[in-house]
Design a protein around this nucleic acid. Structure first.
Lengths: 261, 261
DNA sequence: CGCCAGATTGAGGACGCTCAATTCTGGTGG
DNA sequence: CCACCAGAATTGAGCGTCCTCAATCTGGCG
């Protein structure tokens, strides 16, 4: 009973596997970074039940118009949220890396207006909405942490809007790389060297650019010795330089604990 | 004691004026559209205390980096959220019309990463965060409604990202006009004729375009008999045509009540 | 009547797109 | 071990949308 799914490229695992718990721990770390939680809250989150599932490249995880019953916690790989025009042009509106609850918002607004797909390969831990809601009702601090997590997600989208609307192609690419770097760091992963599990087309779709043009911009960044690529690993050689080119200020990510009033 | 502010163009009024209550009623209507509330919730919201203030064109309402103690309910005019690059290029990331709580999210994340300004003239009713938080703690349905309101705001930002990233200039403008029309309608205002209290520069800053180019696109829309302008009033002559040009589907606004699971 | 913000219009240029060909890479099967 | 293949990265050439930089026009207001 390795698979309960007909798609040969996705597999469902029993819920007792470790990966889900590890991702919950990453997520918890992020929640705590933004608001203090009680021990009770921590235990509640860490014991969230769920289902683990793996996806091959570019698979639908949540479809447009669906009414979801669960939220997606990214365990491995990258999950992308996107919209598309009637002509079929896609715009990715968010990337979710391990430790991100990609559609926590669906706990409160289950109708899907922006679908989710795996970028390259991805593993997702599905947590039922019931569980999330009940946790929020029992603990006001947790409810607030969830709400806040959604707010931060929204602020990231705003920053993307600024990026796409007002910066040149080179800055856009640099900005995205800086953001991913910081977000990896925020969940305890390596900061200056991480797997860029995205095709250049994905990056283009996120930035309002063509994959072709992303390629040229990457070349420019490499030729300026700002970054280096080996396979899908990205190395940031000159953080300050990259941040400068990308006009990057990490404030919008709210990665530092802020004192509550 | 008409004014407690040194800026000669902003005025603070005593809290017992009616306009604040009217705006609260508009907001409540929107909250209810998205999730059912109890009578207790309604009374709670309608009795939110606050401070009324008027702004002239392009005034700061909430500044970058500030730590706010209150949220801004738009009573009249349009309030814009924006970001800007280090070179000073502005990108508006949201418009808020009467009945919108422009920064409800600040109740949960008070550090401002995206400031607010009045677009043209605007009136705002400030509600203290304490009040909002306490209301959320007392009523789980209300807490959820607040959270959901923020989520919808985020989905609008995502749609803007799609708009700016993937549509041509003409479609962008048409899309924005459609959105504003629907949002006016959703709070009970007129749908096909409403004041467009924005300069073409504002519209450009919202769409990642130049004011000059917005002008050309508006001309195109007029010449196709889709819209008509008289002063700052916008008339939509051909809704279906405009929606088609703008590739507009109102789903993301979540204006219809959805059954809860 | 002069002033100012905003709308309008024109001409030229740049950035990023389209289309297409080629190379590179990892995986697969013989 | 090599041939083969698909997906992705890379590169080139020509083009179009939208920007830049003006200048002019309009309406409201002191």
């Amino acid at each position: 009973m390795m698979s309960i799914n007909h798609d040969p490229e996705t597999f469902v695992y029993p819920a007792d596997m470790n990966e889900g718990q590890e991702a919950l721990a990453l997520w918890l770390r992020r929640l705590e970074l933004r608001s203090p939680l009680t021990n009770f809250d921590r235990e509640t989150v860490l014991s969230f039940p769920g289902t683990l599932r793996r996806y091959a490249s570019s698979r639908d995880i949540v479809r447009l118009g669906e009414r979801t019953q669960q939220s997606c916690l990214v365990v491995d790989g990258i999950v992308a949220r996107f919209g598309q025009t009637s002509e079929g042009h896609r715009q990715l509106t968010a990337f979710y890396i391990p430790g991100d609850m990609a559609d926590l918002h669906s706990a409160v607004l289950p109708v899907v207006t922006a679908p989710l797909q795996s970028a390259m390969t991805a593993t997702v831990y599905f947590v039922p909405h019931d569980v999330i809601r009940r946790a929020g009702e029992r603990s006001a601090t947790l409810a607030r942490a969830f709400w806040r997590d959604c707010v931060v997600d929204a602020q990231v989208a705003s920053e993307w809007l600024l990026n796409v609307g007002r910066r040149g192609a080179l800055a856009r690419v640099a900005h995205l790389l800086c953001e991913l770097s910081c977000r990896h760091f925020a969940v305890g992963l390596t900061r200056y060297e991480f797997p860029l599990n995205l095709t250049q087309t994905h990056i283009g779709e996120a930035l309002g650019l063509t994959g072709v043009h992303v390629n040229r911009m990457m070349r420019a960044l490499r030729s300026q010795s700002l970054v280096q690529t080996e396979g899908n690993m990205l190395k940031i050689l000159d953080w300050a330089g990259l941040a400068s080119v990308g006009d990057f200020d990490p404030g919008y990510l709210h990665m530092k604990r802020e004192v509550d009033d």
